[in-house]
């Protein structure tokens, strides 16, 4: 009996997603159409990919507030590279490397100077955002080649290309977190950092790796965002860090570390995507949408907390 109840609560995010999906299918005739669903996928892909990285960070007991700013920085630099003749591939690679570099910076700063990640990434948020505005003069990067839109808007065998990118990233992150030593240590560090140190685990190295992966995934997301907007926006990604953290938390991630999963995060991100899309379709005031998402976050964490209290002790 205990086991079954536990399972139901664990499945709660998934069940919520299904219910939400069914509700919207009935409530709006425009919801269950290929056009609308692929637009949901495209809209959520960016948050989704960033949330994958954030899952690793949160499982390790850390937090990354700088992902929105990294998104803007990487997207701006990546598109500038394309415009200045590096080619689309070169530009995408540049964007990816920018993300990786910022992730490394976050990881190295937290581990070497031993500043809490909340503070470090609050700092790099400001630095990355400021540098982006300086480099771009505050103006969007325009003049991107038409083909660049394929990344964000194209389809491959009838499937939105971003969905394939997302699945690819999700599978890799899943394997990393659940099947590799890196993932194992990520959970261990998040669950009990002291015990991890005492077990001889090179905690600093693995912490840096976690932030680096998160940064790189944000780099990928930045180029998708740029491709969808067909500009490099220095102001892109404002407030994304909160959406990304929310996706992880709705999916069962614990901000004290040691808990969280890739599947949970994907579900969390899609719940938020459907809430936004459904509100649009049903004509709900966009200001109210924010309040709804806020309520969902609190409800998700409250239910998860209730589950843990019930089964501890």
């Amino acid at each position: 009996m205990k086991f079954r109840f536990d399972m139901v609560q664990k499945l709660l995010p998934f069940l919520s997603l299904i219910s939400l999906f069914l509700f919207l299918s009935i409530a709006s005739p425009h919801f269950l159409t290929a056009v609308n669903l692929s637009s949901v996928v495209r809209q959520t892909a960016v948050i989704n990919i960033m949330a994958l990285g954030m899952t690793l960070v949160i499982v390790s007991g850390g937090i990354d507030l700088s992902v929105g700013a990294i998104l803007a920085f990487s997207g701006t630099i990546g598109t500038m590279c394309i415009v200045s003749g590096w080619g689309i591939g070169g530009g995408i690679l540049a964007g990816l490397m920018c993300g990786l570099a910022w992730g490394l910076a976050n990881g190295v700063l937290t581990t070497s100077i031993k500043i809490p990640p909340f503070i470090v990434t609050l700092g790099t948020l400001g630095i990355a955002r400021g540098l982006t505005l300086i480099i771009s003069d505050g103006l969007p990067v325009v003049g991107l080649p038409r083909e660049f839109s394929f990344l964000g808007e194209g389809t491959f065998l009838g499937v939105p290309f971003v969905l394939l990118v997302l699945l690819f990233c999700a599978v890799l992150t899943y394997l990393t977190l659940h099947a590799t030593k890196l993932g194992r240590y990520t959970y261990a560090i998040g669950s009990n950092k002291e015990a991890a140190i005492y077990a001889g685990i090179p905690v600093a190295k693995y912490t840096v790796a976690v932030y680096a992966i998160s940064g790189m995934l944000t780099g990928i997301a930045s180029m998708i965002e740029a491709s969808r907007l067909m500009t490099g926006q220095p102001t892109a990604g404002q407030g994304y860090e909160l959406l990304v953290i929310a996706a992880v938390v709705i999916g069962g991630g614990s901000l004290t570390g040691g808990e969280g999963s890739v599947v949970g995060t994907l579900i969390g991100a899609f719940i938020m995507g459907l809430l936004a899309n459904g509100s649009d379709l049903l004509g709900i005031n966009p200001y109210l949408q924010q309040a709804i998402i806020g309520t969902v976050i609190i409800a998700a964490v409250a239910l998860d907390g209730a589950r843990k209290r019930r089964f501890s002790a």
Partner: peptide
Amino acid sequence: KTGLALELPLKV
């Protein structure tokens, strides 16, 4: 405090 990751399974 220093010996176990309490949330993780025995095998881990």
